[in-house]
Design a protein around this nucleic acid. Structure first.
Lengths: 353, 353
DNA sequence: TCTATCCATTTGAACGTTCATATGTAAGAC
DNA sequence: GTCTTACATATGAACGTTCAAATGGATAGA
């Protein structure tokens, strides 16, 4: 009744025996094929193939003093609430790591201290080769901890203050994002463009707000009485926008700090009997999954997460390969994805592109 | 100018030298402390502490023929779109694994065949001890692949057809969830309760629909002309609900197959000038982040993801520890989280509980 | 024919840990 | 005082791989 147990995984010696060579020759066939005579190489590779041999990870790790694993933190909330792009980034990161022969190991942590405790654990056990950090904020203790111990890492999220040490990071230019978003709305003919933001004090939120202000200044648009702020959420977006729409000179377009806020704004616009996209334009930020499940589809500012993830992997592997490799920092430009909510010509059919 | 390079991690021999014992005694202190005389044990543990020694993972892995790693697939979309609970599950899984001394290794895969290719890769390299699958569907080839090779795994998601092999799985009783949701609305005095579902053919969607029908039958409620279906989305929910609300005898409550649909329904209700929670009740499914960012907060059916994740870890570790351990299957009950959208008494203040 | 040179392949060692077993030492029984 | 027993600690081996260096055989030069 019982099925026979599956056979044990073949070792390098099994392959050697099968190919009638020593185990070292098999190793050479895999790691330095130019050392083998072509016919021997072919014979060994055939044996490898026939037995389905793959070098045992643990043995390589021990011998090479490496794990080919990159650590990444998993948060309870999956990022900043509903507009969470962390899962998309994580997929891209995992994918990019794989392309370079690395895996991603997740660890649960809530808060910086907790995350540092996990660093400590993983590093002291030699369980990872490096880390990719997601998000940053003022006085972030994580980067200092890692830098002091020469642990290879890269941060997706810039340092928000001067630091005594250097490290590689990437970040998205939120300022440029809202600037482009505001320009995009102005190009559609809008003059009274409002900004729906987060409360002052969040680095990312302030950066995005500044981009809106810069665009308005550049284009000579009014901002007075057109900027409101509140905690992130669809409900909050609705309330904030409703207040502006009830004014004597309501805005005809909204730049929003997040997609959740933007969806709320759309709601308020429709509640007033106006048509989103035709009467009032709305644009969000992050191009989260939310953007394409609403009707009309929401225009949004998209962070190139896939390329960022790939570059994160590149940078952290550089540090792993050579701990003295140069520190690289870069700010990448997000792009405006125009959909129905800001552009009538996209209104029909409702596309999800 | 250059900082001195960080010292190499201490090995068991360094600790032994420091504590004036042989390295095996250090190993015993950690793995079989009862063998040591109390004073020696104390001395060794102090040395361990002073040097900050942690056994190298790779060496343990090689010796013990184990990795203490569980594989989990990362998808491009992060689950089924906006209502995605995969990230929450992943956090809970990682957390639960850690409590049992295991880590979670992520791999990117799109589609079953791709995922199986990753199984093949990880298993043949001995890079993981087992897998946790997320989601299942009819004719899922993954379970068969793993079962045939005696790879320990557990599935969050039931088998949707008869299989020739057995495996451990957990699933949420979607039927019971919508049944409870419908009962909850009936308890609030509603009689005309509508159902907003997904197109026929999705296992999960059909299961949830059946629960609604069962509740209606049990309570003697009408369903005729009260059930509509469409692809998941906020916009879709709005359109479907608008159709029902325009009828001569509109429903006064909505059971929705997802939170995204429910948010769309809320939208349609308000667009008609009715108040969600007071005039019309709405309840979603999954208790996704969406539920608490809308105003009023959305009632929803919550899957106990944390306990499911913990049990997934328990079950897969059972299989890892003993490949012949019994197969366990269980269906767990979700719970109705009542918020403002279905219960006027919750309307103020807008809580997020 | 003998030695030098080169190349393919093999032998030896090491990565750091844990398991199995052997050694040594102190206490208890005769 | 010796022998046994029990217990604490030490030695040997193994997990599977890769790197460094040694071996062996063929080829070419003298």
């Amino acid at each position: 009744m019982d099925r026979e147990p599956s056979p044990p995984r073949p070792t390098i010696k099994a392959v050697a025996k099968h190919a009638q060579v020593s185990y070292q020759t098999v190793s050479n066939a895999l790691n330095a094929p130019e050392r083998l005579r072509p016919d021997t190489l072919a014979r060994v590779l055939r044996a490898v193939d026939e037995l389905g041999y793959r070098p045992t990870q643990a043995a390589r790790n021990l011998r090479l003093q490496t794990t080919r694993l990159i650590g990444f933190r998993s948060t309870r909330s999956g990022g900043r609430g509903i507009g969470a792009i962390e899962d998309r980034f994580l997929y891209a990161l995992t994918s990019a790591a794989r392309d370079r022969g690395y895996g991603v190991i997740l660890f649960a942590a809530d808060g910086d201290e907790d995350e540092i405790a996990m660093f400590e654990d993983l590093v002291s056990r030699g369980a990872v080769d490096g880390f990719v950090l997601f998000g940053s904020h003022r006085h972030d203790p994580r980067t200092a901890w890692l830098a002091e111990r020469d642990v290879p890492f890269v941060s997706f999220g810039r340092p928000w203050e001067q630091t005594a040490f250097e490290y590689s990071w990437l970040d998205v230019d939120g300022h440029a994002g809202t600037l482009a978003a505001t320009q995009h709305l102005a190009e559609q003919g809008h003059r009274r463009i409002a900004f729906i933001g987060w409360p002052e004090g969040s680095e990312v939120g302030d950066d995005r707000y500044a981009g809106y202000l810069a665009a308005a200044a550049e284009l000579g648009l009014p901002t007075r009485g057109l900027t409101v702020r509140g905690l992130d959420g669809i409900g909050a977006g609705t309330q904030l926008a409703a207040g502006l729409l009830a004014k004597a000179h309501p805005p005809t377009a909204f730049v929003c700090v997040s997609d959740a806020m933007a969806v709320g704004v759309m709601h308020a616009v429709e509640h007033r009997g106006l048509a989103v996209g035709r009467d009032v334009a709305v644009i969000g930020f992050d191009d989260s999954p939310l953007a394409t499940v609403v009707q009309p589809a929401l225009s949004s500012v998209r962070q190139p997460l896939e390329s960022i993830a790939r570059r994160c992997v590149d940078l952290v592997l550089d540090r792993i390969d050579d701990p003295r490799s140069a520190v690289t920092t870069s700010v990448v430009e997000p792009t405006v994805i125009a959909r129905g909510s800001s552009n009538p010509s996209h209104l029909s059919p409702p596309d999800g592109a």
